[in-house]
Nucleic acid binder design. Structure first.
Length: 534
RNA sequence: GGGCCUGUAGCUCAGUCAGGUAGAGCGUCGGACUUUUAAUCCGAUGGUCGCGGGUUCGAACCCCGUCGGGCCCGCCA
């Protein structure tokens, strides 16, 4: 059974209506690791709906969290905002400086700056969650009930956190973090509590009172999370393995949730996505690939397939090179199959049946449109990569596909895919193995491996290529004539030609590629090779 | 020190929850298509299931131990 269906089964035991939560802090550039969080939630929601339940995906925007440090992309002036809430400070402009103008005129905050492009990327991959901005929730008093319980029963809370996490909280610990005289959550000392006020003194020597019902501060993370579960009626939440560790915030959260008066959500811990060859992604190290950047290269349904086809407990290595080609081609192959038909075979082993079922579901979950199925593009990624390189003009690509009978008219999906393919090819991520590269000069090793008969082909090519009419047909004819002159079969002609032009044994069809090159350059290459082999 | 995840074919992984003759895809090799845009089709190749014990008629699967890799148990997500 597919992992999403396993989750749906657990949800069904609990009830028929579900709110699946995801949550991210908009402290910096979003990366594809965050995409796993959202997609995992989206897929659980889809599975629940498929099983006949009501399910909604929500995205908690943790913009009440403070800025932790001045990241490399920020101007040093952000020093003044450390400890301030991400939804209450200005966004960085192109130079990393606070953009006060937009902040004052449009209310454009630091959190918005990172969130909005991420939402655009989500839309492309077919995920449109209901947003729950956390800072606004504090300000509108949604946290009041839980905050009061936390402050009133702070010794029970302390006991839970210390027992479950195994760590000792400092004597000064208090379950509410007020904002200080400058708007920071850092460096305060709590001096007293009279509901609804928490009294404090700050690092500037000021003192004041924070009303826990008006968002003049926030709950610490371990309390903030279970509180949100309650007033948002969250029934299920996937989260990264950091939260899932024993003694981690889910463990304390599920007990605190009960104290707050509600049931904790059904959890699902997922593994990280890392970049191939580079280790875990992290916003602060700059070792990231953003969802936007990823979507410039990868068709959205294939990004979905990557997550759908990996069990959440498995770490994913995101590979923008050959791994992507293989992934995309696997997706294409699966898309072209009819699983329902295959599963009618009663002789299938249980193992095989499971495999078919999982592939079928993964494929369904990969569709951008939940109702639709992601149809096969009928062109493999490999093939498209070749065509895109060989034919600079899109129309020529479609003509080639039409003439081979692969497609009738290019679908919008295919047009979209070609444009992403072109940006991938131009990027540094495109694998060398896939690049169509003609030799600039003869590849001696490849030529030396040729048989005598094949060497005669090169000698013959020297004349026919030079004389060729420089079109696809003309070049094809030149190969044919060379074969006749050298008295060898076409197999040898091409063996020799690939060694000559690409330093390889095989390759893509040569005539269309050569026709895009300058004839004199090719002639020169053949002449040099001919000198080496004769 | 405590805990979580992970280890199965050259590679990526399924199969472990419900024990019943080791699976898929890719790769590799061979063949076909009398040349094909690295295509396609067919066939073959390939595993001491990390290791050691135990339970069982029977273990990749359950139990105990052990080794390797990743991570958490500060703040914060």
């Amino acid at each position: 059974m597919h992992w999403s269906d396993v989750m749906a089964g657990r949800l069904a035991e609990r009830g028929q209506r579900h709110i699946i939560a995801t949550g991210i802090t908009p402290s910096g550039e979003f990366h594809i690791g965050h995409l796993r969080e959202i997609l995992t939630g989206d897929m659980i929601a889809r599975a629940a709906r498929r099983a006949g339940m009501e399910a909604e995906l929500v995205f908690v925007v943790d913009n009440a969290d403070p800025l932790r440090k001045v990241y490399p992309f920020l101007d040093p002036s952000y020093e003044a905002f450390i400890g301030h809430q991400l939804g209450s400070i200005p966004a960085p402009d192109a130079d990393g400086k606070p953009d006060w103008k937009r902040f004052n005129e449009e209310g454009w905050t630091y959190g918005d700056h990172f969130l909005v492009p991420f939402l655009a990327a989500l839309k492309q991959i077919g995920v449109i969650p209901r947003l729950l901005p956390n800072l606004e929730a504090y300000r509108s008093g949604k946290f009041s009930a839980s905050a009061r319980i936390a402050c009133d029963q702070r010794e029970q809370i302390r006991e839970i956190v210390e027992r479950v996490s195994g760590r000792e909280l400092p004597e000064s610990w208090f379950p509410w973090q007020p904002l200080d005289s400058k708007g920071s959550l850092d460096g305060l000392t709590i001096t007293g509590y009279d509901y609804p006020l928490v009294h404090w003194t700050d690092s500037h020597g000021e003192s004041g009172s924070s009303n826990i019902e008006k968002g003049e501060g926030k709950l610490p993370w371990r309390l903030d999370w279970p509180a949100k579960w309650g007033f948002n009626s969250i029934t299920c939440e996937p989260f990264g393995k950091d939260h899932g560790a024993a003694g981690g915030s889910y463990d304390t959260g599920k007990e605190i949730a009960v104290l707050f008066g509600h049931e904790p959500p059904i959890p699902l811990t997922y593994e990280w996505i890392s970049l191939r060859g580079q280790g875990a992604m992290s916003s602060s190290s700059g070792n990231t690939i953003g969802p936007i950047e990823a979507l410039q290269l990868v068709p959205p349904e294939i990004l979905r397939f990557l997550v759908a086809n990996s069990k959440p407990s498995k770490a994913i290595e995101f590979d923008t090179g050959m791994g992507l080609v293989n992934l995309a081609d696997e997706f294409e192959r699966l898309s072209a199959r009819d699983f329902d038909e295959e599963m009618k075979d009663d002789s299938l082993s249980r193992r095989k049946r499971v495999q078919l079922e999982d592939a079928k579901v993964a494929l369904e979950l990969s569709a951008i449109d939940e109702a639709g199925r992601s149809g096969a593009a009928s062109v493999s990624f490999r093939h498209l990569a070749l065509l895109a390189q060989v034919k600079p003009d899109d129309m020529a690509v479609w003509e080639s596909l039409q003439s081979s009978g692969a497609i009738d008219q290019p679908t919008s999906q295919l047009v979209d895919r070609l444009s992403r393919m072109r940006s991938w090819i131009e990027s540094t991520h495109f694998p060398d193995d896939m690049r169509v590269d003609l030799c600039a000069e003869p590849d001696v090793a490849a030529l030396e491996a040729l048989s005598d008969a094949q060497r005669r082909v090169i000698t013959a090519l020297k004349r026919t290529i030079e004389a060729a009419d420089w079109t696809v047909d003309g070049i094809t004819a030149a190969f044919k004539v060379a074969g006749e002159e050298a008295e060898v079969g076409m197999r040898d002609v091409y063996r020799a030609s690939y060694a000559l032009f690409m330093g390889a044994e095989r390759g893509p069809r040569l005539a269309p590629i050569l026709s895009n090159c300058d004839q004199s350059d090719i002639v020169s290459l053949v002449n040099q090779a001919s000198a080496l082999t004769s």
